[in-house]
Design a protein around this nucleic acid. Structure first.
Lengths: 249, 249
DNA sequence: TTTGAAAATATGTATACACATATTGAAATT
DNA sequence: AATTTCAATATGTGTATACATATTTTCAAA
């Protein structure tokens, strides 16, 4: 039987230990063998074991302390990875024709009421956009967006009549982190009218504030008719980041 | 000026490169210097640089190919890490008194209707639980749960009158992955009654199916009154994600 | 008994080296 | 011109070693 060369040694070690933890064989608090012992039993050097164990630390599966050794971490919360795709690809992946309509575009200053959902400074110059995303010609998602023109001045020159602000910003402006809030709300009169649903109907609302180094760049509220849309998230024990196909510019 | 010893060398290299990418100085597709060159400019060995670059790969910020070198990755679909804490700690973190009530506990077999939300085999022996989680004595969350007794037979002996099934299962049964679905739904008559809200009021519904190696262990539906609860998720391009407790005004 | 210094120990960081492997680009062959 | 071959090259994996650092244990002094 030829040795399966699919995984590198340090990955095999990682997977072995991960399997023991996830299977419950090593419950939280259980001691993980010392680096030197693992190195001996795998017939490899300590560095190779160290690499595997340190990746498990970053994945949150184990904790390590000098002199005390390594032990299986106590699971604190269930964490899941939520993929939030571009609305256009979301619609297309349903096999529907995608459509986009700009409803309004206003340049103004940030008011006190905006601060409820958004951490830009008061009086900041913003571009307020209201857009509708369509699937098969019918309303799919209502987008309310504020763009901080102090951080993204290029947006002032863009009409956003044919291109949605989401993809435009993603290409144009660098960002470092995002905060999402997900809630269920009843449709108010204006939302109900635009989404063509009954007033008071449940809606899934995703709010996202994107910023670069503490400065809020844009703040978006996506309102989906409830029951027509759902978010899915899956738990990943290890930090297996999927390789994304990259198109060259 | 004393050398700041806060970060290890490979972390400094990582942070330097991350900063250039996030600032937009190195746009997607931009070439990252070769390992040997970085090693030279930092005055360190190739392995140290390699460690930093490989962490950036796992964080999804760069891509590397042999002979071709490394380059900045194309921005991926926005993905966020969703932290789903235990309901009890969630309530307590709001500064409220937590309460738990078991509404019903029935042992039965899996019916066709259950399969809508749950991938256990038909006729599987299940324990069906309905519980109410309280904050300050008022309904906070309605829990509908099925536990697969074929996978977790210990559950048959537990009454679940004082301990909620979530924490009990977390301690008792190992699991390897979970699938979450989040949606907004209108409260039906029974839900409205239990949560003391109006029928038709919007609710945030989180469904989670937990399994071990392909076998479904438990399937839970958590229904929160809309407007009283929200989920938050945050994303940072580096692999360190912050947990944010969800609190409400 | 308490305090505190010192030894033991496990991980943390980094080096220098060696060889493997995938990809590129150019040279040689068809 | 199209294809194959081959060497150059950048990353991938792993070893052996060294010293740093945090923490526990031990043991002796106050």
């Amino acid at each position: 039987m030829p040795t399966e060369k699919k995984y590198a040694l340090h990955e095999r070690i990682l997977l072995d230990i991960e399997a023991r933890i996830l299977s419950g064989e090593w419950p939280p608090g259980h001691a993980v063998p010392y680096e030197v012992d693992l190195a001996q039993s795998y017939g490899c050097s300590r560095m190779t074991v160290s690499k595997a164990l340190n990746r498990l630390v970053r994945a949150g599966l184990i904790e390590r302390r000098k002199r005390a050794g390594s032990q299986v971490a106590q699971p604190r919360t269930q964490s899941a990875v939520l993929e939030i795709p571009e609305i256009e690809s979301e619609v297309r992946s349903m096999g529907a024709v995608y459509g986009y309509v700009l409803m309004s575009r206003v340049r103004r200053k940030l008011l006190k009421g905006d601060r409820e959902h958004c951490s830009m400074p008061l009086q900041a110059p913003v571009l307020e956009l209201v857009c509708l995303h369509l699937a098969e010609g019918r309303p799919f998602c209502l987008e309310n967006r504020l763009i901080n023109l102090a951080e993204a001045p290029e947006a002032a020159a863009e009409r956003f009549e044919t291109v949605a602000p989401g993809p435009w910003l993603l290409k144009q402006v660098p960002w470092s982190d995002a905060r999402h809030v997900i809630r269920a709300l009843a449709a108010d009169a204006r939302t109900a009218l635009l989404l063509q649903i009954a007033e008071g109907a449940p809606c899934l609302v995703v709010e996202r504030e994107t910023s670069l180094g503490g400065n809020s760049i844009t703040c978006v509220r996506l309102t989906y008719p409830g029951g027509k849309y759902e978010l899915t998230a899956s738990f990943t024990p290890t930090d297996k980041t999927k390789a994304v196909p990259s198109a060259m510019p």
